[in-house]
Design a protein around this nucleic acid. Structure first.
Length: 833
RNA sequence: GCACGAGUGGCGGAAUCGGUAUACGCAGCGGACUUAAAAUCCGCUGGUCCUAAAAGGGCCGUAUGGGUUCAAGUCCCAUCUCGUGCACCA
């Protein structure tokens, strides 16, 4: 079939998409004996409009997946939809469109856009988390985890809008008011369901060391998030009572410098210990702190404020009496909600002591250097470790040793212990939302008078999300939406069969995304969330690609869930993902983040219309390395399109002349030159793709095409065969990037087999080494000239050739060579004086 | 404040293990083709100095200042700027 002269991608891109689909070339599992690759991109939330940032994310996995298919692997490259969630529900409150309808439309739009770009997904494995077929397994996991005591009910602070009378999300709180109605938002204690992820804090932290193919900044963020700190808890007896205050500190070595004990304003001992004379002031302060929204209390951070309670505590080691204060900077939810204040060795305590004129006592001296002045003379806290002074029997010890001995002393007297504290909290996962997975719990007054909740039996799953009258139920006000649906709420108790009420909260969508990667392996499996045999074959995921904004929450939950699944015997490994890639943002042409507000959003569809899918793909991948942000550039898009046109024109020009040409005779120099370029390209592109350097892979193909344009003569049988081979190699190396163009050319050259189903040729090692190499010649490290010598030359020959060079001779004139540094294949350096 | 990452031509970027800095693309300039333009193809393109110019050559140059080394964009120390994340965490 003759090619037409012009490159018109519109005339053939859809054809190839159909052919790939019909041939089933991207169906995972079609090479059961081959080694496997699991290529996964974070599943998208299908919002209204797909933009190029999504496309970039998926293209990284796309090229990788297509490459490994060519390399003979069995590849799974699935796509699905994170279909539950807040935006669809908020939109429904606004315009009354049922979230299910909107979500279905958005999915259809996303899917057709992805298909128009020629993505190699195995669509037979598509999942949507809002399908009962999927979310019933969230419910199944919930029941299993409840049985393993990994789920519990607790009270927790939520944002409560005083006008909507409902819980709102953090991102809906704007400067302490509700984004929707502008009314004040307060913190309110509400019951919620939580997973005991903190039982795994230590394991999740330790295993980060093993994740060598994760970006360091992601593992660092997870470390900080988990926030492990080793310290000591110590009991300060409250003078004149039987109570004691338990404090947490990482610097027990400074305890002899303690001038006060400071409690959180909402610490439970506060009302009990406050002296009558101080009561009014303490209550006023506590009330003011409670009325502040959490965000404001932190925003006000600079100013440290506190109030004396009138009570005194006894230092368990020094036996000194110190006052008990309450202060805004102590948080009830961290550590024990109480600290010892040591102003000489903690900057925050220092500022506090200055403000309220509390005594400052130095008890740690620098190991070397001058001694610290008396506490009253200090200008800032000394927070480093050092040597203890004025610390009774512990004086003279170094800080680390003192911490061990003091902790042991406290333990011995039953007044404390060494502990580990984590910043990470348990994962509260219940939401007062409609558009999520119903929690399979009922409340029965007869069987469960305390309202702990009765789990359903597995055979009662799934609890289906009821259809609703959107206007009546999704109001954004009052009770949770499901509470307004009597047919859902009213049910029977699984124990006594009497009347009962269903749990009306739904699950956080992070539950959906914690295990979806395993569901792709057997998306219609009915006995369990997925088939463990498939898990053994495909897991862990080889490469996982997504935005760095998911560094902590999603990726920690995802790791946590993987451990749970292993303990349930479902999966073989501790960690879900071998290699993690976090891709950069695609900014608008103005360098600002794409957003409707700036009107700088670039959508894929018009681009595909104008230039074709292959240009869109090639541009995005050529623009920069995957992890870096890029600014959209229309000029560079034109450049990518020009390159593909050049490929087309090249193929067009040689089609009638070389298609099908074969020759295996002796290598003629002109033919050899073409073959060298082709095989070097093959090597370079393969290596670049493996290290995800797609921009240099494309640069390598461009250089190859440029070289083919400079070929002057293609006449002999050997030359024609070399050109035919070169164009064949070109279609292969180009196919992960511009697959439609590759197929079209390949077909025109008489190949009936799809490029997507052909092997990546092995490069010929003999063709990728040069016969003559350029050597840099340096004198004292400065470049003087470049010489060309036979590739197999050793140091002596290169040196002789270099010394024969005119410029080198003049540079060395009058000097004696003291040393010669020879780097094979690169350079020779004369060190002379 | 703490942690992490980045800083290379007019622009996007390349340099994989310490070994010829600026590959490839964009923009710009020149040429070919054309009545002309566009498109296409070919070539040039870091700064500065020597020279009328060319050829040729010298010096400087990867945020800044030091250091290690025969050799530094790359390693070490300090500083500046930008980005991201976390933040009264005891």
């Amino acid at each position: 079939m003759a090619m037409q002269e012009r490159y018109e991608p519109k005339t053939f891109e859809a054809k190839w998409q159909k052919r790939w689909d019909e041939a089933g070339v991207f169906l995972a599992g079609r090479r059961p004996k081959a080694p496997e690759k699991y290529v996964l991109e974070m599943l998208p939330y299908p919002s209204g409009q797909m933009h190029m940032g999504h496309v970039r994310n998926y293209l990284i996995g796309e090229v990788y997946a297509r490459y490994y298919w060519l390399r003979g692997f069995d590849v799974i490259h699935p796509m699905g939809w994170d279909a539950f969630g807040l935006p669809a529900e908020n939109a429904a409150i606004k315009d009354g469109v049922h979230p299910a309808i909107r979500t279905r439309e958005n999915i259809a739009s996303f899917k057709s856009t992805l298909q128009s770009l020629g993505f190699s997904y195995d669509w037979t494995r598509e999942i949507a988390t809002c399908d009962p077929e999927y979310y019933r397994w969230n419910q199944w996991f919930f029941l299993k985890l409840l049985a393993r005591d990994m789920v519990y009910r607790r009270f927790s602070k939520v944002n409560w809008c005083t006008s909507c009378l409902t819980v709102i999300a953090n991102e809906q709180v704007k400067e302490g008011t509700c984004e929707r109605c502008g009314s004040p938002v307060i913190e309110k204690e509400m019951p919620e369901w939580a997973f005991r992820i903190t039982r795994y804090s230590d394991r999740l932290l330790q295993a980060l060391d093993e994740l060598r193919e994760w970006p360091e900044r992601i593992t660092t963020m997870q470390r900080n998030w988990i926030g492990r700190s080793e310290g000591t808890e110590a009991d300060f007896a409250v003078k004149g009572t039987r109570d004691s205050v338990r404090i947490f500190t990482t610097r027990i070595d400074t305890i002899f410098g303690c001038n006060a004990v400071v409690l959180a304003p909402d610490h439970k001992l506060v009302p009990k210990i406050t002296a009558p004379a101080q009561r009014a002031e303490v209550e006023r302060f506590s009330a003011r702190m409670a009325s502040l929204h959490g965000v404001e209390r932190i925003a006000d951070a600079a100013e440290k404020e506190g109030v004396f309670t009138g009570a005194y505590a006894i230092n368990p080691l020094s036996k000194e009496e110190v006052p008990i204060w309450i202060a805004n900077f102590v948080l009830v939810e961290y550590g024990t909600g109480a600290v010892m204040s040591v102003p000489a060795h903690d900057q925050r305590d220092f500022e506090f002591a200055r403000k309220y004129r509390l005594p400052i006592k130095v008890v740690v001296q620098p190991k070397d250097g001058p001694k610290l002045p008396a506490g009253s003379e200090l200008s800032a806290a000394f927070t480093d470790d050092g040597v203890l002074s004025d610390s009774g029997e512990f004086s003279g010890l170094e800080s680390a040793e003192a911490r061990r001995r003091m902790t042991a002393a406290l333990e011995g007297r039953g007044l404390g212990k060494g502990t580990v504290t984590y910043r990470q909290k348990d994962w509260g996962f219940s939401r007062q939302r409609y558009w999520g997975t119903p929690i399979p719990i009922v409340y029965c007054e007869k069987c469960d008078p305390s309202g702990n909740g009765i789990p359903l039996r597995e055979d009662q799953l799934p609890v289906l999300l009821p259809d609703i009258d959107v206007h009546a139920v999704l109001t954004g006000k009052g009770e949770p939406p499901l509470a307004k649906v009597p047919s859902f709420v009213n049910t029977t108790c699984p124990r006594c069969g009497g009347p009962a009420r269903r749990e009306v909260e739904t699950m956080d969508t992070f539950v959906d995304s914690s295990w979806y990667y395993a569901r792709y392996l057997s998306p219609h499996y009915e006995l369990a969330p997925f088939d463990p045999a498939q898990a053994r074959r495909w897991l862990p995921v080889d490469i996982y690609i997504g935005g760095p904004e998911h560094a902590v929450m999603h990726l920690l939950y995802f790791r946590f869930w993987t451990r749970l699944m292993k303990e349930m015997g479902l999966t073989p490994m501790d960690e879900p993902v071998q290699r993690l890639v976090t891709q950069g943002i695609v900014n608008g042409p103005d360098g600002r983040k794409m957003s409707k507000r700036w009107g700088n959003v670039i959508a894929p569809t018009p681009l595909v219309e104008k230039f074709g899918a292959d240009t869109a793909r090639t541009y995005v991948l050529f623009a920069g390395p995957p992890e870096r942000d890029i600014d959209w550039s229309d000029d560079q898009v034109e450049g990518a399109n020009r390159f593909l046109k050049r490929v087309w024109t090249l193929a067009f020009q040689y089609q009638s002349k070389v298609a099908g040409a074969k020759h295996d005779g002796t290598a003629e120099p002109a033919a050899l030159q073409i073959r060298r370029a082709a095989h070097k390209c093959l090597k370079r592109v393969g290596e670049a793709i493996e290290r995800l350097s797609f921009n240099t892979a494309i640069a390598g193909i461009m250089e190859f095409v440029n070289a083919l344009y400079l070929v002057e003569r293609v006449q002999t049988a050997a030359e024609r065969a070399a050109m035919a081979e070169a164009i064949h190699i070109l279609t292969i190396v180009l196919s992960p990037f511009a697959p439609h163009l590759s197929e079209e050319i390949s077909e025109a050259y008489g190949h009936s087999q799809l490029v997507a189903d052909r092997p990546w040729p092995k490069y010929d090692p003999a063709l990728v080494v040069d016969e003559v190499l350029p050597y840099a010649v340096q004198v004292n490290g400065k470049l003087r000239t470049e010489i060309r010598v036979a590739a197999e030359s050793g140091e002596a020959e290169v040196r002789a050739a270099a010394e024969a060079d005119e410029k080198v001779r003049s540079s060395l004139a009058g000097k004696s060579v003291r040393k010669v540094v020879f780097v094979p294949k690169r350079l020779i350096n004369f060190v002379a004086s």
